[in-house]
Amino acid sequence: MINRTDLVVSVVLLAVCGALYYVTSTFDEVSPLFAQDVPPERFPRMLLWIIAGLSLVLPFEQRLRGKRGAVLDKARSEPVHPVVYLTGGFLVLAVAAIQLIGTFLVLVSVCLGLPLLWNERRWKIIVPFVLLFPALVMLLFGHVLGVYFEPGILGIKLP
């Protein structure tokens, strides 16, 4: 009758809605000058009620949709592969390192690290990819479009 995974999703959504509803009660008081306007918390609260209401349907959705409901479990039928966590962690580290080592070195690290993480060992492709691709992208955005990139504390950037 109830899909357990969807029940968890539903509970998480309801908890987030509850927390955000509380946050709406902490919004600043509106000046009397704007008393005739719609209060700032009204619209977000309406949305939170809608999300919460729809979330209550989630655990029963598979049941309600009969055979067609099976498709909802397809993407999550297998556990998340460890490489996804590793990839996610690597990307977080890469972004966190921008201020330290600068954008250019981060791009180089991404172009080297991700293929290696994904079992790519064809060095004849890896080496030119790592050397050329980040440099071309930096040249395009930095020189052609005039974007300023973080050089990091090491101060490494393209001339």
Binding site: L91, A94, V95, T103, V106, L107, V110, C111, L114, P115, E120, I125, F129, F133, P134, V137, M138, F141, V147, F149
Partner: peptide, 12 residues
């Protein structure tokens, strides 16, 4: 190689 390239564009 394709997806690291996508990430580079996404980041920049």
């Amino acid at each position: 190689f394709l997806w690291p390239a996508v990430f580079v564009f996404a980041l920049v």
